[in-house]
Design a protein around this nucleic acid. Structure first.
Lengths: 349, 349
DNA sequence: TTGTATGCGTTATCAG
DNA sequence: CTGATAACGCATACAA
């Protein structure tokens, strides 16, 4: 038994479809009596508006597309997608997800799907190719980047990586650490994109340097390990962090603290340290970034939290504004912040 | 600039809309010449079919709903959702996600949204209320449960929990463990649902007992810890496992191995053990369930893997069959299996 | 306060 | 092989 139509409701209530529409949308004048009859009819036959018909007529699908990097490898993406969806729900919207896994070709396919579905806007967490993003502009669909800007072809709500990273460094320095290693994304490897200015990786790396300087610590290139966050093909997604940490522990003078710019990297670091028979934080402290895996790791990880809920919610509200008014609200720089748990402690003496 | 319409393509190609439709759907006779002209026009104006119009006309949205428990707390759900989506993509479908967080009321709202969107079918991972699921039947929408059956109101593709759990127990027993603890979901607390027969929790618990018996080990009630998998309100989602493990370690004669029926529980167990200054697997072995967090934990967790990709893919194909032919294919019982990593080792002597 | 009529962009059914 | 034309279910401009 397929759902009833508005016309059937009208018939049953003995009014016109226009009247039914008026009570359903709660706009326009309707007599109390007609309203009651319509409501009774709606209930009686279990009427539910057909979103496709509505969308076709209104030229609005009440749907947005959310382009993600790789939802099953990094929980960061799940989280922002979740909160964007939650906010969307509050506004009568639904979101479509699509994972490009870092591949421009996949991203293109996803965007084409979004266009066919006539999404009212799309969120990128994150974008891959400027050319692809322009496809949306060409179709008249607003697009917004979340967390990082990879292309000038769409506005972005970015995160202030510096503030949290600086807190992390100050925390470590305050604990007496003098040899602090850094495991992070290589600005060149991660993909700088087409946006001018420092990338997320540049910022985190710069904050490491600034944190060192602020604490009066010298920079030691041996303590700097740059690479990818994870490789999609490898199981044990923390393997990059694991490898870097093994190298760090093999140093003649090993670090007493490691600042990893991703919880996944930190997870691998924790494994390497454990395997070496060292204890966290007694022998070595570890800080991560994102606050995704953190609370599940052993020991619970001190990490720089990203504002995932704000990113999702504010991001959705921003595109909603673009949809409804054609204008973008101010794009705030959302702060990251240090969350202390149990993986950091005083430097060993 | 909004996307062009089929009619505009027709005009530009100098043919009727019917002809355009024929070349687009690759069915019906079209002369080579007409086809070429249409294809050129499509390319020229960047035409993309409007899925809403198509859906309205065909009474099919090429969309399915996927009802999930709580995507941000348990990666298990992300994974099956991801693979179902992936399979859907291969068949021209998109999925809508909705998290009910274990609440029947939320589930009802989600289902209503799905109905309004006119999804062609819905997947439950997992269902909460029979009454809600019946809403779909009333609307003529096929529904399928994945991983576990909570209601007789829809068919289910379930997982064979026994096989993997038995492997886990045999693995532990083979390693010489004689005091094996069990931390699992309480069959009563988790929600038995309305389906007759043993629940997932019953099965895992039974396998524990059977594994003990097979190894000639006595059952010790002190080693049995039943509760919830996690509480949604608590950060550090492994806290349930942490608490149970603390209790276990405080026993006069503590276990040398713990079998936790969820990686999240195992993550908490690992934290408690670490905090107690014990080493895994030297002092105590741990096995989890699901294979979600496993590879990221310290040490990498031996766990009973659930067939998440198969669940998603086979699940989608099953509903597709229901949509297209009105019949359900055979529902296989998908096997779980032990994945050995580094958290299990010989029992200490 | 209410009803009529039209069109949103497709697909499908007919004739031709 | 091709072209009119009529729905699909709803929203809205316009009349009444």
């Amino acid at each position: 038994m397929k759902s009833a139509t508005l016309m059937q409701v009208a018939e049953r209530a003995g009014v016109s479809t226009a009247t039914v529409a008026r009570v359903l949308k709660a706009k326009g004048y309707v007599s109390e009596e007609a309203r009651a009859r319509v409501e009774a009819a709606v209930k009686a036959i279990g009427y539910r508006p057909n979103a496709m018909a509505r969308g076709l007529r209104q030229r609005r699908s009440f749907t947005i597309g959310h382009m993600l990097d790789a939802i099953i490898v990094n929980p960061f993406f799940v989280n922002v997608a979740h909160w964007a969806e939650e906010e969307a729900l509050d506004h009568g919207y639904k979101t479509f997800l699509f994972n490009h896994n870092g591949l421009a070709e996949r991203e293109r396919i996803g965007i084409e799907r979004f266009i066919e579905r006539r999404v009212d806007a799309v969120l990128f967490t994150n974008a891959v190719s400027t050319e692809n993003v322009r496809l949306l502009a060409a179709a008249g669909i607003p697009a917004l980047q979340l967390e990082r800007s990879r292309t000038p072809a769409a506005p972005a709500i970015r995160v202030d990586n510096t503030v949290g990273a600086l807190q992390a460094m100050a925390h470590l320095a305050g604990l007496g650490h003098r040899r602090i290693a850094f495991i992070g994304g290589d600005p060149e490897l991660i993909g700088r994109g087409d946006t001018a200015g420092p990338t997320v990786e540049d910022e985190r790396l710069a904050a490491y340097g600034a944190g060192l300087a602020a604490a009066g610590l010298a920079f030691d290139p041996a303590l700097l390990r740059l690479g990818k966050y994870y490789s999609l093909s490898e199981s044990g997604s923390g393997s990059e962090g694991y490898r870097h940490t093994r190298a760090l522990l093999a140093l003649p003078e090993r670090p007493s603290a490691i600042f990893a710019t991703c919880d996944i990297l930190a997870a691998g670091a924790l494994q390497a340290i454990y395997e070496a028979g060292l204890r966290v934080p007694d022998d070595i402290s570890v800080i991560g970034f994102d606050d995704t895996l953190a609370a599940n790791l052993t020991p619970q990880l001190t990490t720089v939290a990203q504002p995932m809920e704000e990113l999702g919610r504010i991001g959705f509200r921003a595109v909603l504004s673009a949809i409804e008014t054609g204008t973008w609200p101010d794009q705030p720089l959302l702060p990251s912040r240090l969350v202390q748990r149990r993986s950091t402690g005083p430097a060993p003496t």
